[in-house]
Every structure is written in structure tokens, then in C-alpha cells.
Design a protein around this nucleic acid. Structure first.
Lengths: 301, 301
DNA sequence: CGGAATAATGCCGTATGGATATAACTGATG
DNA sequence: CATCAGTTATATCCATACGGCATTATTCCG
């Protein structure tokens, strides 16, 4: 015979009642059944757990030790069940999130806040990555979900847009248009430009170039950079003007002004992406929360 | 359905193999049986533990968490079994031992040594008590086994003799007979005596009185005491001579000599006593070891 | 001494759980 | 592209394990 929880449950109950009839009643079985369960338990252990006279029952030393173990054991079993249910419900576990630099100042904080209040027991692991790094990390499973911009060509991945970034112009405070708040791109045709690296920010690069082309000029590049705060910093240092996503406004540099672009062209989408075959229960919840938090963030700014 | 170890064992095995057929083979059941076990497990938990395609099987997040719990659980179960067996075999647990003062210098140390080498994991709790205190403590279960002298009238207790103490004479170094090594009691008829309290040491008291009576005199009491080292100490201080159990020789006081008694009368038995209804598995082993250690001790001295 | 309480035993029916055969599906291979 | 090998799920059957009931044996108590 092999040890089963049924026997352990019965034994613990009996050890509390110290009376076969009452214990059996509590267990919703008949007294002879319990009698035989306990005998079977003692047989499998090869140990006498109870010292019984016809009149009363008491635990032996081994029975006492075993009872204590069994109580802990049953609690552990329940705990295991509950943990499984919590993890399955996505209320517990871990989620590895990658994100692009621009969302650091943008929708990432409100998304994380919203998620953490709903799922406080889920551990979030955060990784800032470029888009292509994210796609690679998602493919190999290093990351569960990514916050990035299209295009996402990999067809092992699914994606869902959660918001749009508009482009605005960043100008040094000293610039003639700095206080205007709204300008046409063509007004900047003779200004030096701080631009994004083509390699790491291909979508920004091509979009901005297209905008300038539509405005009838090719930007005169004075400096290149990858991260938004670097670009804005360079603008603030007087290196030129730049076209940046609207989240740059959150950087609040004293020497930089921002202006909206007339004939505002379409922005760029920000997406969530994850593996098609991912089964993480936390994932859909995160996607949902990110979408609404993203919407609220855009509405509020 | 209710959670059973059978399901947990199967699940752990499957989580290791990640293949129903191989896992079933290891479990010595057929693959469909395992299939249904796992389905039943998932149903009782209300949680999907495995993500299965027709081609391969992998753990879900909940499954991983549950697997980890289950591994620990199975180890705990085995540990509980082993502990029960060890306790039942008397290899583990606790034993409360009471003993009379005189055994402190006598057979108690060798007994404890012998027992501890055989059963190193059994915790020994030691209590020095008078005989009547021991009987009371044994009755109420405060103590599991006692080392004492007869008579043991209580019929809830069992006893077993493990050795005999002989009586010898203790003399101050300055006493005329100090160097003889062997004297007749009648030679001491005019000496002042240090004697045991009648109350606490009734057997010693009556035996010693009987010996003196047989030698034709009533001892002249100069001082009374309860504990052997006190009696011997008083002899060493010149308060008189005394008749003491042979263990007193082990006290090694510089101002005390000992002498054997001619026509050496019978000594007094030392016994083990324990409750008739005690089920402590350690107890018979202790009794056995105490008996042989006692014999060896007497043989060696 | 009789009755109440309690654990064990005997016997029987059923529901549980495993085996066997097979289906359904997926990759791999020639 | 067809076939095969490998894998999980389903269907069916059957043994047996387990619980219920009736009864026994023992002990305590009035």
C-alpha cells in the first residue's frame, strides 16, 4: 500500500477527536471504514500510531510526531492549491516587460501603476531595449511582453496598438520661434537639425525625413543621437532644432521649448507585442490594462 | 474530487518527463490512465497545469508553481514517514529519566553513555528526585522511567532490578581503623555515627539500623543528612563514622577512608521503574541498556 | 448483571481507477 | 505528397479497493 492524503486526513481528524465514531462522523464515513483506514495507514508505515483499548484511544509517541507532520502537510497542500489558482488567475507570478526608451517618459509609468494596483503580487521585471532587441527577446522567451513601435514582422508574435505618439518640434529657448507654440516645418528649412540614428530608430528616422520632404526641404543634420533625452538635451544645448515624439515634453528642460507642427501629420503607433503561443495568464490582463492606461494617458496630456 | 497524493506523484513525474507515455511507463501505469489522472487533477484545482499540443507538453505558469510545491510536498511526506518510523523504533524522541542521588556517582553515568551511543537522536531529560517523588512523577507521567530503590508498592508501575549496592564503612582518615580496609561493625559501637534521614532514605535507614543491631549495638547519632556526598563530607570533617553505599567511594575525598564490612550483609537493589501502560518505544531499549551497563559497572568496580 | 459505548470483523455492492484498443492529430521522411 | 512514427485523448471493459451495514467483542458504568 502507498501513503495517500485520504489516510492522512482521516488520521489527523482521528487524532483530534481520539474517538473513531466521532471522527468518522466528521469525515462523513462510517466507523468501520475509518477503523480500516487507520489500520491500513499503520500497516503502510509499519508503525503503531495509536494505542487503543476497547474503551479509549491515545496517540503513541510515533503517532504524535506523525500527527504534527501531517498537520503541516495538509496546510502545505492547501497552500499549494491556492497558489496554483492564484498563479492561474494571474494574481501571482512574474512578468518580464521590455519597452522602448520613449515610453519611459510616456505611458510606461501609468501602465505599471495601473497594473500594480490591480495585481500587487505579480513581480514585474523591466528591460529597456531597442525594438529589434525586443523582438529577439520575445522570440526566445526572455521577455513576456514588449512595449514597442511597429513594424513587427515576426509571425511568431502577436501585437496590439495601445496608443499613438504625435510629433512635435523641439527648439532652443533662444530660437525665434520658441514662444510661438505652433509652427510650420518649412520655417525650419535653414535650421540645423538634431536627428535620430537611422539604425536604432528607423521608424522615427523615416517618418521625420518624410515630413521634411513634404515641407519641401531636406534637414541639415548637425548631430545624431539615439535616445530621446539625448536629442532634447542637444537641442537645449543649442545644437539645433529637432522633430521628436510628444513624450519629450515630459522631460522639462529649461532651455528647450516645444511647438506643435501645423498640418500635423500622423503620429506613430505604440504597440504591445507578445508570443502567439504564450500561455501566461497575466498577459491578457496586462494587455488590457496597458491599453486603457495608454488611452487615459493620451487623453490626459 | 479531492486532491490525492497519487495525482501529485503522477503530476510531478509528468512534469519531469514532459511526455505522457514515458511518465506513465515510469509510474507503471498505462498512458491513458495518466491522461485521466492529470485531467482529474486539473479539474479539482480548476487550473490548467499543462499546455499540450498533440505533439508536445509543457508546464503553464501555474503548473510550474504547483510542481515546485509538489516536489517539496512529496519530500515532506517521505520525511514524515521516516520520522514516524524512527520514533517508533525508539531512535528518536525524548525520554524523561528520574534518578536517586546515589546513582549520580554510580551507575547513572555509564548507563547514559551507553544509551547515548546507541540512540544519539533521543533527547534525555534528567531529574534527580527522592524515591517517593519519583513514584509520584512516574504515576502522573512527568517522568518515563526512574532509577530508584525498592520498595515500589504502586501497582500501576513495573520495575526491574539492575544492580546491587553494597554497604561499606566511611571513616575519617584520622580514625584508628582508617588503614585496615576491612572491619567488623562491632568495632564501631562506641563511635559517633553520621546517618541518613529516616524520612528520605527509609531503606538505607532501616538496613543500617538492622546491621548495627546485628552487631550488637545501636549507633550513636552525631548528625543526620540526606544526600550521600553530605554524609561523606561530614565524615571527612570528623563528625563520625558512617555506613554508606559503595558508590560513595567514587567521591574521592582526601580526608575520608573506606573499609569493607566483615560478614558483609546483603546490599540494596537498585531498580528501574516505569508505568505498566507506557508505550514509549525507547523504554524497553533503555531498560535493557541500563541493565547491562549496570552489570558492567558493578563488575568493573 | 445489564445496558451503553466503542473498536474490530465479515460480507457485500458499487464506484473508482487501470488496461486495452482505437481515434485524432502532428511532424518527419522518403 | 503519402506514409509513418509518435503523441495525447476517448471508449469500453473489468478488477478491486473502499465504504456501508450488520454483527461481534470488550469494557465501563450504573
Amino acid at each position: 500500500m502507498t501513503l495517500e492524503l485520504r489516510l492522512i486526513r482521516s488520521f489527523v481528524c482521528l487524532s483530534e477527536e481520539l474517538n473513531f465514531s466521532r471522527a468518522a462522523e466528521r469525515l462523513h464515513i462510517a466507523q468501520p471504514a475509518l477503523s480500516r483506514q487507520i489500520m491500513a495507514l499503520e500497516a503502510t508505515l509499519g508503525v503503531q500510531l495509536l494505542h487503543r483499548t476497547k474503551r479509549k484511544v491515545e496517540l503513541t509517541a510515533a503517532g504524535t510526531a506523525f500527527r504534527n507532520r501531517c498537520c503541516r502537510l495538509l496546510l502545505d497542500v492547501m497552500e499549494a492549491e491556492h497558489e496554483a489558482r492564484r498563479v492561474a488567475a494571474g494574481q501571482e507570478g512574474a512578468l518580464a516587460i521590455s519597452f522602448i526608451n520613449s515610453s519611459t517618459y510616456g505611458m510606461l509609468p501609468p501602465i505599471l501603476n495601473a497594473f500594480r494596483t490591480r495585481f500587487p503580487r505579480v513581480e514585474l521585471k523591466l528591460f529597456e531595449m531597442t525594438i529589434s532587441e525586443q523582438i529577439q527577446a520575445l522570440r526566445v522567451g526572455e521577455v513576456d511582453i514588449g512595449l514597442l513601435r511597429p513594424p513587427i514582422s515576426d509571425n511568431a508574435l502577436m501585437s496590439r496598438p495601445i496608443g499613438t505618439q504625435q510629433f512635435i518640434v523641439a527648439l532652443p529657448r533662444s530660437h525665434p520661434y520658441a514662444q510661438v507654440g505652433r509652427i510650420s516645418l518649412s520655417a525650419l528649412k535653414n535650421d540645423p537639425f538634431v536627428v535620430f540614428e537611422r539604425q536604432q530608430s528607423s521608424l522615427f528616422y523615416s517618418r521625420i525625413n518624410a515630413m521634411c520632404e513634404a515641407a519641401g526641404f531636406v534637414p541639415m543634420v548637425s548631430q545624431k543621437a539615439t535616445q530621446i533625452h539625448t536629442v532634447v538635451g542637444l537641442v537645449g544645448a543649442g545644437m539645433g532644432v529637432s522633430i521628436v515624439p510628444d513624450v519629450a515634453k515630459n522631460l522639462q528642460l529649461p532651455t528647450v521649448s516645444f511647438a506643435q507642427i501645423e498640418d500635423n501629420p500622423a503620429g506613430v503607433d505604440v504597440c504591445l507585442a507578445w508570443r502567439k503561443d504564450s500561455t501566461l495568464p497575466t498577459l491578457p490582463a496586462f494587455a488590457e490594462i496597458a491599453a486603457t492606461a495608454g488611452r487615459e494617458y493620451l487623453a490626459g496630456s
